[in-house]
């Protein structure tokens, strides 16, 4: 069963209208379903639009994986940073190599009977 907040987050990315959460008091960034600010404790974080493009922070190629992704390895997982001071984890689409500092665009890959997979495509 996929958490409904995750479905909503992925659906917004799919619509090219991704959302993050911003603290109403101190402006700290977070991702749904975070409601309490991890920095100042303010109990209200509000939805705000997130860019589609981000910058690669780190990447690795997964060779040994869980039963679910077996048969797909090796594939690359990336942590990328958005201008809004949010970092997100996703799978790299395509066969291009990425390095820290490279630009990527966030997306979603949907497969039958699977929760959505957050992806990054080199831009």
């Amino acid at each position: 069963m996929t958490a409904s907040w995750y479905e909503s987050f992925a659906a917004a990315v799919d619509r090219e209208e991704p959302q993050y959460r911003r603290c109403a008091a101190c402006g700290e960034s977070g991702l749904p379903p975070r409601q309490t600010c991890p920095t100042c404790g303010e109990p209200e974080m509000i939805d705000a639009p997130l860019s589609m493009s981000a910058t690669v922070v780190a990447a690795t190629e997964i060779h040994v994986t869980t039963p679910k992704f077996e048969g797909e390895a090796p594939y690359t997982v990336v942590i990328a940073e958005f201008d809004e001071n949010v970092r997100l984890t996703g799978q790299l689409s395509g066969n291009e190599d990425v390095r820290p500092g490279d630009g990527v665009t966030v997306g979603v890959e949907r497969r039958e009977d699977w929760p959505p997979v957050i992806t990054f495509t080199p831009s």
Partner: peptide, 28 residues
Amino acid sequence: VITDALANAADNEYENEAGLTFPGIYAL
């Protein structure tokens, strides 16, 4: 199964659903 079980120590939606594993996390 162990790779899957160890992944329970990670964030299920934000890490595991992206195909990240524990060796992958430490690799990053």
